[in-house]
């Protein structure tokens, strides 16, 4: 009965996450536009984009690319499903990673140099954000004694009180995953960069639509991870997420795109250092 309930929760969560992800993406574009003193697109714009891309004539370069797009979407969906089914955090993390890896593999399977450079940069980004997320998960495990999400909901004080530095590290990882400035290195929303849309260049039509949905799901998953830091009250959770996302938008709009060298030196290093300090602190108070 317990398992059935969890499965049901996972399915409902996944369906909801898709809509929330698209909505967040629309809100993101609207607020970004307003920050740039523009009117901005309608809130439902990401849905229109995805529907349109779904209806485009197929133009895939090879079968591997199509397969990779499906696998990326499935991995992202599965990780969100597992999150809402309150599964193991480590498992969720690995499933999420599989999605990112397949996206890169698809980009590497074609012959375009833009796609290749984008894929290499995406791998470097993964190299940066994955240790940070893993350290956050370790921190949570150290605090609660278990990798399960249910154990976090059992806490009576928010995680943020004991893990503020880890939250900052998670914020860095979140910015990279969102593909926002200064970390829109492998791909960017508008494609105004030297490698066009980088890792996404060769995905077209339906495949691009799937990757877009996968991206929404990844964003929801990472917001979910952030939400664990204030699991005690719904209002606090919502406020934390709103502040976090607004901070992301703010950083996106006040900074230029930087290079992967800087990302590894100035994002991974301090991120890991912050996380380590927090982990030591957690170890000390135990």
């Amino acid at each position: 009965m317990m398992i059935l309930g969890k499965l049901l929760l996972g399915v409902i969560g996944l369906a909801l996450a898709t809509f929330i992800g698209g909505f967040i993406s629309g809100l993101d574009r609207k607020i970004t536009a307003r920050m740039q003193s523009r009117f901005g697109p309608p809130l439902a714009q990401p849905f229109y984009d995805v529907l349109k891309l779904w209806g485009k004539a197929p133009m895939a370069v090879n079968a591997w690319l199509v397969l990779c797009a499906y696998l990326t979407l499935m991995a992202s969906a599965l990780s969100v499903f597992l999150f809402f089914a309150q599964s193991d955090l480590l498992l969720i993390f690995f499933v999420m990673t599989i999605g990112a890896v397949f996206q890169v593999m698809g980009a590497l399977s074609v012959n375009s140099p833009f796609s290749h450079v984008g894929a290499q940069r995406e791998l470097l980004q993964m190299f940066t954000y994955e240790p940070l997320i893993i350290l956050v998960i370790i921190g949570i495990a150290m605090h609660t004694g278990s990798f399960s999400i249910a154990s976090i909901y059992a806490l009576d004080t928010p995680l943020l009180y004991s893990m503020p530095f880890l939250y900052v590290a998670l914020g860095i990882a979140f910015t990279i995953k969102l593909r926002k400035s200064p970390f829109d290195i492998s791909a960017s929303h508008h494609g105004h960069q030297e490698i066009v849309r980088g890792v996404l260049t060769e995905y077209t039509g339906r495949q691009l639509a799937m990757l877009e949905v996968a991206h929404w799901l990844d964003v929801v998953l990472l917001l979910g991870l952030c939400s664990l830091f204030w699991s005690t009250s719904a209002i606090g959770l919502f406020l934390l997420l709103a502040v976090t996302y607004f901070a992301e938008l703010f950083v996106d709009n006040v900074s230029a795109r930087l290079t992967w060298g800087w990302m590894i030196k100035r994002a991974l290093g301090p991120g890991v250092a912050l996380a380590m300090v927090n982990l030591l602190w957690l170890y000390a108070i135990k």
Binding site: T32, Q36, S37, D184, H190, H192, N253, S255, A256, R257
Partner: peptide, 16 residues
């Protein structure tokens, strides 16, 4: 130039 290094909001502000 601002757009060339990915600073979109600066691009928008200057063109405004």
């Amino acid at each position: 130039f601002a757009d060339g290094f990915g600073f979109e909001s600066l691009f928008m502000a200057l063109w405004r």
